Amino acid sequence: MTTAESTSEPRVPPRWFVRTMWSLHRGLYRITAGRVGLRRPRGRTWGMLRLTTTGRRTGGERGVILAYVEDGPNLVCLAMNGWAEGEPSWWLNLRAHPEATVDLVDGSRFVQAYAAQGVERERVWALWREVETNLDGYAALRSTETAVVVLEPRRPS
């Protein structure tokens, strides 16, 4: 067993690498007109969706690709900012304007976002723990609690 394998603290790539991969992923999604870059969750893997929010300062549309798990009709994401400090912009936007749109492999849907609390948070955190075995270790890298964001279906306004 190597030293890296014997420690329980997870390792996160450098911030420049994480940001570069996010940019490449968004670019791939854009140049393939959405044919590549999204996936459904299967077995013990999370899916990927594209979330479109309303900017809290500009009022313009802002898009981001996020990991998610399913909880019945709801989609559950973690506001973890690549496990770095601070809240991700998409979560700040949703707190200001909770109505959003998600693109999935099988189409788009309108959603309403909220942060899971109490027993619901514990339950959906456990769903995430099933697909990310070191979830608690990653969360411990942050000084603040990671918001568990539920995207529930809504009717278009």
Rank of each mutant, 00 (worst) to 15 (best):
T2W: 03
T3Y: 08
E5L: 09
S6G: 00
T7G: 08
E9F: 03
E9V: 11
P14M: 02
R15F: 00
R15K: 00
R15Q: 06
R19H: 07
S23K: 13
L28I: 13
T32Q: 00
A33N: 01
A33Q: 00
R35H: 11
R40Q: 10
P41R: 03
G43A: 13
G47V: 03
G47F: 07
M48H: 12
T52G: 07
T53M: 07
T53P: 05
G59C: 08
E61M: 11
E61L: 12
E61K: 11
V64T: 12
V64H: 03
L66A: 00
L66V: 01
Y68M: 11
E70F: 01
N74Q: 15
N74V: 04
N74A: 15
L78I: 09
A79M: 06
M80W: 11
N81A: 12
N81M: 10
A84T: 14
S89N: 11
W91G: 11
W91I: 06
W91A: 08
N93R: 01
N93C: 03
A96W: 12
T101W: 15
T101N: 08
T101G: 11
L104K: 14
R109A: 09
A113Y: 10
Y114T: 06
A115I: 03
A116C: 08
A116P: 01
Q117K: 12
V119A: 13
V119P: 10
V124R: 07
A126W: 01
T133E: 05
D136M: 06
G137Q: 07
A140Q: 06
L141S: 04
R142Q: 02
S143G: 07
T144P: 03
V149N: 08
P153N: 09
P156H: 10
S157P: 12
